[in-house]
Nucleic acid binder design. Structure first.
Lengths: 181, 181
DNA sequence: ATCGACATGTAAGTCGTTACATGATTAG
DNA sequence: CTAATCATGTAACGACTTACATGTCGAT
């Protein structure tokens, strides 16, 4: 009954872009919403079945045998608008990296340095990916979608740059500790 | 058996600071690790029972009837070090705000503006809290813990500042769209 | 005496991932 | 022909939240 609102939003949202198969919904979420949203296969198909039961999506015969294409219905679009209007529910924070660094005195400063360097490296890669996505969106998206796509990509870029600056600062702090020994 | 490693780290970590009751563990996690880690009551007590069974914490008679104080054992400290050394496992991202903004064309730009203003406001509050925590740490923590505490607080500050800058940029982008109409 | 903080624990249910089982289609 | 990708689904398990039930202690 209460099959996760948030998953419903992601699935209906993906189908609001164009009709597609369950597999493609998963791919679309991974590739387009990937920087800020994840869904596993095990969620997609039950969610689609439930949405079909509620008449929010329509299942059509797919191009290949055994496959189905799902399209959002008018009711589905209305429901999507409704769900988007609900207050944002925040998941409790769970940052494994910070948890480790907080207890850094057990790990030793060398291991912490390594963690920070890895984090910096990850953030730089993320930033590079997002920057190329940024230019792709400017070229590809329709005017109506463009700003909203850019806003979400920009959030990732700001966050990645902050992570890089933070890692540098933290590494400098650990170096300061070491030199004062 | 595999009672969540991550919860185990948080609980053992809290007890590594000083012996305390289960209630206090929960409070310590909320107040000290709160910006980057959350645990609910329903996790704490089963986790403590499991840790006791494994001899990683020792239960002592508490000051009040029916209460127990838990202290980390030598085995527990060893286990904590071991767990901290395991690779950081990242949870798939789930940002409800970005999910809504991505589908902003269904919400309308006014609602999106409101969401962004709220996010900016939240980030500013978070920043203020973290800044005061920052100065408190400089005064209170021991030299050994200080840098590690500062690193985690600093991560929150960088992230909050990035959120503010992003919200401003996004609001400007939506205003640009509107003025071009 | 009663209110709020301290304290412990469980049960029910939601949420979500992973792995498995299965098969069609396409590119090399 | 065969490997990769497309495609659908389920089952088992693990994680986590919330609400409930219960009781102690200190302050007003």
């Amino acid at each position: 009954m209460k099959r996760t609102r948030q998953t419903t939003i992601a699935v209906l949202g993906a189908l609001s872009l164009e009709p597609m198969t369950g597999y493609a919904v998963h791919e679309a979420i991974r590739s387009t919403l990937g920087h800020f949203w994840g869904e596993s296969v095990g969620q997609i198909y039950p969610a689609l079945a439930e949405l079909e039961r509620q008449g929010l999506v329509r299942r059509q015969h797919g191009t290949r045998s055994g496959s189905s294409t799902f399209a959002i219905t008018a009711d589905g679009e209305a429901r999507l608008k409704e769900l988007l209007g609900e207050p944002v529910q925040r998941t409790p924070p769970r940052n494994g990296l910070l948890l480790r660094l907080f207890f850094g005195r057990f790990l030793g400063s060398d291991t912490c340095r390594a963690l920070l360097e890895q984090a910096r490296c990850d953030a730089e890669q993320r930033l590079a990916t997002l920057e190329s996505l940024h230019t792709a969106i400017a070229a590809e998206d329709t005017a109506e979608q463009r700003s909203y796509s850019l806003i979400t990509v920009s959030a990732g870029e700001h966050s990645a740059r902050a992570a890089i600056a933070w890692a540098d600062e933290a590494l400098a702090m650990l170096d300061g500790d070491a030199s004062r020994t």
